[in-house]
Design a protein around this nucleic acid. Structure first.
Lengths: 124, 124
DNA sequence: AAGATTCTACTACATCCGTAGAAGGCGACA
DNA sequence: TGTCGCCTTCTACGGATGTAGTAGAATCTT
């Protein structure tokens, strides 16, 4: 399930709270995004075709629900990034993160802490 | 510098070893990608327009060099992913990685180890 | 110097993506 | 019952993207 940039916006709004109508989604889009109502509808239609969301008509108004979980969409995006930009492996990503001055030490520490405790839990 | 999927393929081949000619790039693309020579050229032209690579003509053949480093391209892709799929923050990504069963404990541990030593080095 | 090979520049074209207008249906309300 | 406001579906359109063919120039090979 590959989402486009605009579709991510919609999905993000939908995951936030659902089911939701097109208008609700629109109101929940980040400030700065001011799409016409019909634009939202168009994208919802496409997402329904893609089976990323479901649509049910209540009276004359459609309400939408995500069919793919945020977790799943994130995984897919994450894997794509890995494949495309990091040789498909965690190793190069780690390397990159370590090198990357633009991530603060705090961010790195946070990342490290959680991952470490996780790894211990599971053992390996 | 936003690269498309196909452009990443080209850039990956180019970063691997450069300068390189179109033909060399072509030969270095992952098995499974079998683009026509002219397809490579088209994309190189577009990358030159975008100023992602430079082109110098040696005799009648162009040789190409990356103008954006792999590190920079990676950063940009990483940030995009963060913004698009993880609320622009490391936190949610961490959360995701921790939850994600599909990353092995080994991968997580590896990630954690490097990040931790990094964070300590730098202090914050 | 003819022929084969290889390169470049230009053009093409289907599909996807972002974005939205137009037109018509329906319930609320004066 | 006319019309206001919101909803829906259908249609559109320019630009980006993936993919490549064609034609002619340059170079190698005998």
């Amino acid at each position: 399930m590959k989402l486009t940039e605009a579709e991510w916006q919609i999905m993000n709004a939908l995951w936030q709270k659902h089911p939701a109508t097109a208008r609700e989604i629109r109101d929940r889009l980040p400030a700065g995004i001011n799409w016409a109502y019909t634009t939202i509808k168009t994208m919802l239609t496409r997402l329904v075709e893609k089976q990323a969301v479901s649509e049910i008509k209540q009276a004359n108004t459609s309400v939408y629900d995500p069919l793919v979980s945020q977790q799943k969409a994130r995984l897919s995006a994450f894997r794509s990034l890995l494949d495309q930009a990091f040789d498909g492996a965690i190793g190069p990503l780690v390397h990159f993160l370590a090198e990357e001055k633009q991530l603060t030490a705090r961010e790195k520490a946070e990342l490290a802490k959680i991952l470490e405790s996780e790894a211990q839990d599971k053992g390996e």
